[in-house]
Design a binder for these strands. Structure first.
Length: 114
DNA sequence: CTACTGACGATCC
DNA sequence: GGGATCGCCAGTA
């Protein structure tokens, strides 16, 4: 491993944050990345979410991109599951996009403050 | 070690 | 507003 295994800590931290997302709320990859100090490495969060599928109790469906688009829905099974889950929590989704995403946006930095 | 890819983001045009 | 490019970090070939 050329990684020195710091990634695992960050990965768990990301999962912890995702689990903290309240029902009926959503957040973005970049917001999570920023909250863990990576700031501009939203891709890393996307990669982490991919690993999240391998984990349990990680509501990745509450994580969308900065546009509020369900960018990861294609990775769900079935892809429509993401929208179904969001709507079931009270998050309106239209055209694969979160309605009022700006209002429903949950900022990890403001809520965590460990 | 280099190159490409990926659930992204911001910037440039 | 939309397409294209770079940057970001880690993983895989």
């Amino acid at each position: 491993m050329t990684t020195r295994t710091t990634n695992k800590d960050i990965l768990e931290l990301i999962f912890e944050i995702v689990r903290m997302i309240p029902r009926g709320r959503v957040t973005s990859y970049g917001a999570i990345a920023a909250s863990i100090g990576l700031r501009s490495s939203a891709r890393f969060v996307g990669w982490a979410m991919h690993q999240a599928s391998h984990y349990k109790n990680v509501p990745a469906h509450r994580v969308v991109n900065s546009q509020g688009l369900l960018s990861g829905k294609h990775h769900f099974t079935p892809p429509e599951a993401m929208q179904q889950l969001l709507e079931a929590e009270g998050v309106a989704v239209s055209n694969d996009k979160v309605v009022n995403f700006k209002k429903l946006f949950w900022d990890p930095q403001a809520e965590i403050q460990l």
